[in-house]
């Protein structure tokens, strides 16, 4: 990926809605995508295709909170390191990845199965606008194309085709994310997987990928290490990780206050635990549990959601 910065594609409009059509023969056509055996003859682009290395993050639409957190964090770290995160604008993992990437310093790219005028799912309209503001929405489908089931697997070859590698976060046994991973392998791209709980049905597909040789990913460095060309990004990620080390060890060892520690100790990183369970386990009355949970939450040790709490994952 030692390419020169590319000239801007021809613009049709202004602002977020600037749209263009990129043909296979255009110099702006993504070079990596050109290498696959069935590249789309033309791409409709809203925004601007960033000319930097891309990594895809894909996964289940019905992701668990753990999966969303993992995707969010990995995308943000990749983006911070200067890598463009590619995903499919779907619910669940895709959205978490786009949102995480938007928090980082690099644009993100969403590959859609529908026409540019039909954002699917509809509730991601705002997210799509955010993506197009700095990065791009791209599709090979003409305007007005509906979200038909058959279009999604076809779209997935573009996601993997654009990317150096594909990271799978939570994929059920037969899922679009696994299709993307298979295509990535066929296209000669790297396949990565963030592991999940062995009890989680959404982790089965990803775990099979690991058994078949996909690389297990814990941190952004596990991804970047695979690409010699990304030494620069790796260095940036490394520096940022070290900057966080101090806060990380603090958060890992729990709160100082023994009363708060006693609660924190009973909590899990992944499985939420309800308020009532804590009251029973600690033999405390509800108001005391409430007090401690709020103090833990406000100092960033735990995350509360619908009366159930989990430990806050390392940042």
């Amino acid at each position: 990926m030692a390419e020169d910065p590319l000239p801007d594609p021809p613009h049709k409009g202004e602002g977020d809605r600037r749209e263009s059509t990129v043909w296979l023969t255009d110099p702006t056509y993504p070079w990596l995508l050109k290498q696959i055996h069935d590249p789309p003859p033309r791409l409709f682009v809203r925004g601007r295709l960033p000319p930097v290395p891309m990594i895809a993050i894909v996964g289940s639409r019905r992701a668990t909170p753990y999966g969303c957190r993992a995707a969010h964090r990995l995308a943000r770290d990749l983006s911070d390191a200067g890598v463009v995160v590619v995903s499919g604008l779907a619910r669940g993992i895709d959205a978490a990845a786009h949102r995480g990437a938007l928090e980082g310093g690099t644009p993100t790219v969403a590959v859609m199965a529908t026409g540019l005028d039909r954002i699917y799912p509809p509730e991601h309209g705002e997210l799509a606008t955010g993506i197009a503001a700095s990065g791009a929405l791209i599709t090979e489908a003409e305007e007005g194309t509906l979200p038909l089931p058959g279009r999604f697997p076809v779209r997935n070859r573009i996601i993997s085709g654009l990317s150096l590698g594909v990271v799978v976060v939570e994929a059920a046994e037969r899922s679009g994310a696994l299709i993307t991973a298979r295509m990535a392998a066929e296209q000669g791209r790297e396949v990565f997987c963030v592991p999940g709980s062995i009890e989680n049905p959404l982790a089965i597909g990803g775990h099979r990928l690991i058994k078949d040789g996909a690389k297990l990913v814990q941190t952004v460095e596990d991804v970047l290490d695979e690409f010699a060309d990304l030494a620069h990004a790796r260095a940036r990620a490394h520096a940022r990780t070290h900057a966080r080390t101090r806060t990380r060890t603090r958060a890992d060892s729990g709160p100082q206050d023994p009363e708060l520690f006693a609660v924190w100790e009973l909590l899990d990183w992944v499985e939420p635990r309800h308020h009532d369970d804590l009251a029973v386990m600690m033999n405390l009355d509800s108001k005391e549990v409430s007090r401690r949970l709020t103090l833990l939450e406000m100092s960033g040790y735990i995350i509360g959601d619908c009366g159930a709490v989990t430990r806050r994952a390392r940042d």
Partner: peptide, 14 residues
């Protein structure tokens, strides 16, 4: 403080 802390646990959640 303990009263506010408890009250915050009864807030609307997503």
């Amino acid at each position: 403080q303990s009263h506010v802390a408890e009250a915050l646990q009864y807030r609307e959640s997503g």
